[in-house]
């Protein structure tokens, strides 16, 4: 089993939907996630009918990497944009790719209402517990005691509240069809993440409604760690607070 997972990472065929080398820092989780998202798009044969919503954050340049149409949108507003795109182009596949600052802070209203309406769109939510692009500030998902440039002594709940659990929050809503949290810290989990992403897209193709995959990702640069240390941090610290699991799955429910 383990060998098979590694093989997927090392020997997977060239991904057509995924182009170029990325601008991401060495050891960043975005590169892995881009690859497996592109992979899933290829396997489902949807790249020519996909409209990809690029949100503000490190992944704003995703339009350089995915061979499909793109709309780059204001900070946090991707779900509102995606809502209109999908409703006006119901036969297309609409993906938003959003970070935790984008989705869980400035765009909280948009994500909750798109989920609550059960929009038939797919959200890839990258949770790396930090603001990456602006240089390592506190995110709503930053762990207690975790340091950031705006919490130099660590996050304290008394000042900044507790890390926001998006999947758990959205799971209180009736409409979403698929909610899962995955991670990228080892080959097995990368494989699982790929399956989750592919499933989320499949849900949309089947018209099941709102699907969101929360991906616990690592940010060695802003966490000031080596890539290995950062993956260990996800496994040992983040996963404890953000359990990996399927929160909602209505793929076969009518």
């Amino acid at each position: 089993m383990k060998k098979k997972n590694l093989e997927y990472i090392l020997k997977s065929p060239k991904v057509e939907a995924f182009q170029n080398k990325t601008h991401y820092c060495p050891g960043c989780g975005h590169g892995i996630l881009h690859k497996l998202l592109g992979d899933a798009m290829d396997e489902l044969g949807i790249k020519d009918i996909t409209i990809f919503i690029d949100s503000v954050g490190c992944s704003v340049f995703a339009y350089n990497y995915f061979d499909c149409d793109h709309i780059q949108v204001p900070h946090g507003r991707a779900p509102a944009v995606a809502t209109a795109v999908k409703r006006l182009r119901p036969d297309k596949i609409v993906i938003t790719y959003q970070g935790d600052g984008d989705l869980a802070a400035i765009g909280t209203a948009e994500i909750i209402h798109a989920a609550n309406r059960g929009e038939n769109i797919t959200i890839i939510f990258v949770n790396n517990a930090i603001y990456g692009m602006t240089g390592g500030q506190l995110a709503p998902t930053t762990l207690i005691k975790q340091k950031s440039t705006t919490t130099p002594r660590g996050r304290f709940a008394t000042e900044f509240g507790y890390p926001l659990k998006i999947c758990e929050m959205l799971n209180t809503l009736k409409a979403p069809a698929y909610l899962e949290r995955v991670a990228l810290y080892d080959p097995l989990h990368i494989k699982k993440a790929k399956e989750a992403v592919k499933k989320a897209l499949r849900m949309q193709i089947k018209g099941k409604g709102f699907s969101l995959v929360e991906v616990l990702s690592h940010c060695p640069t802003n966490w000031k760690m080596t890539p290995e240390e950062s993956m260990k941090f996800v496994k040992e610290k983040m996963e404890k607070y953000y359990p990996l699991k399927i929160f909602r799955d209505r793929e076969f429910k009518k």
Partner: peptide, 19 residues
């Protein structure tokens, strides 16, 4: 569509026009 906010409305318009 009645959106959740003015902000969401203008961004929905952005999305619609972009397509």
């Amino acid at each position: 569509l009645q959106m959740e906010s003015e902000i969401a409305s203008i961004n929905a318009a952005l999305g619609g026009a972009a397509t």
